[in-house]
Each structure stands twice: as structure tokens, then as C-alpha cells.
Write a protein that binds this DNA or RNA. Sequence first.
DNA 1: ATGGTAGTTCGACACACGTCGTAGTACGGT
DNA 2: ACCGTACTACGACGTGTGTCGAACTACCAT
Lengths: 98, 98
Amino acid sequence: MPQPERADIRIATVLQALGDPVRLIIVRALAEAPGGVPCGEIPLPVTKSTRTHHLRTLREAGLISQRLEGTRRMTTLRRDDIDALYPGLLAGVLAADR
Amino acid sequence: MPQPERADIRIATVLQALGDPVRLIIVRALAEAPGGVPCGEIPLPVTKSTRTHHLRTLREAGLISQRLEGTRRMTTLRRDDIDALYPGLLAGVLAADR
DNA sequence: ATGGTAGTTCGACACACGTCGTAGTACGGT
DNA sequence: ACCGTACTACGACGTGTGTCGAACTACCAT
């Protein structure tokens, strides 16, 4: 499950990852559940494989972290890392009405 | 010079516009010059036409505003609008070292 | 063991995107 | 009037991206 260190996270990659409606849904859902969520439980208007694709994009950008838990992949937002690198960014994104 | 009203700015479009290295250079340069800058004066590693393309992307996303001033296009960051819609977002982006 | 649940991987496909060069427009100065 | 400066517009090209279905893997329960 490759995932960048905090020092390797790039702002352009993070912003590009956030700039997709489906991935925004994921990030918003994860922000509501600080303990993490089985990624399959987030309702998304796409198929399983597309879901996997978006989760990989977010993970490789450094926005989320995934750990195996039995047959599920527990997904959490890396809020501490993102807040440390880009203070206010997530708050601004999550505050958006549209 | 089409440019969205504040109410028509979409977070996904804004983030997608910010998720490009060249456009990040532009936004950072504009953030340093609150009064606006002739867009040709920002050093960019691309040709004129590509520069125009990126400026249009930023303008249509609602991030910048351009007004004609003689033969130059004065470009300003719409910081008030973005800060009002997504408080902290620009601060986080601009705080990024990498 | 068997089967079901949860995800990933692999092509494939259409479309969007960044880039360029060339041509065009518009304004200002000489 | 003419020319230079500053940018925009238009196509073209290669690459990246979001989407899907089908096949595969891993784990748990029965």
C-alpha cells in the first residue's frame, strides 16, 4: 500500500487529487469520521474499480491512509499531515457549500 | 472576459485549476502583488499561448480577474471571493513549501 | 472445502488537458 | 500611416484521466 511520507507530499498533487467531484465526496465523508471508514461504505456514483482508482489517487497524493482490517480496507483522512503542511486548506475545502 | 460571479464558483473547479504547477506559480506571484500584475511579467516556463490558456483556466475557475489596461491585461487574484467562500484555502496553498 | 464478501488489477475506451506554432486582433508610439 | 508590443484564437499533437467490465486475490463464515 504505497503512501508518501509527509515530506514527500506535493501541493500540486494534493490539489489535483482534490479537484475531482468523486474524490471530494470521499474526503468529505472521511472528515466526518475521524476514526476511519471501510472505504466500501461511502456511497459513490461509480463502480468498484473506479472507486479503487480514486482511493489510490488520494492515497498516492498523501491525503488518505489505508490499512487492512480483515477483508476490509479501513480508510482514514491524513488530517494531521495535511494540516501541518497546508494549514487551513482542508478547512477551506470542507467549508465549501459548492 | 468571462468570469464567474462569486455564487457560481465551484470548489472542484477551483481545486482543479490550482492543481497545476504552472498555475500555482501564477497564483503565488499574484498573491505577492495585491494590486495586480501585467500577466506577461510573471516568469513562466511556457510559451505565450500556453500562458494565455492557464490564465483563462484560472479566470474561468474564479481565481483571478483580468482587466484591460491599454495593451496590457492587468491580472489580480480574487482573494476576497476565495477567502469568503473557502476560508483558509489560499493560506494553506500559499504556505506550502513544496 | 465451499461459497460469499471486499477489493484490486488489467485492458480498453472516450474525453479532457497541457503544450506548441502560427495567425490574428488591438492598442500605443513614432 | 506604420510598426512594435501584448496578448488571444485556432488547430494539432501526445499524454493523462475517469470510466467501465471482466478476471483475479484474499479473507471470513458456514
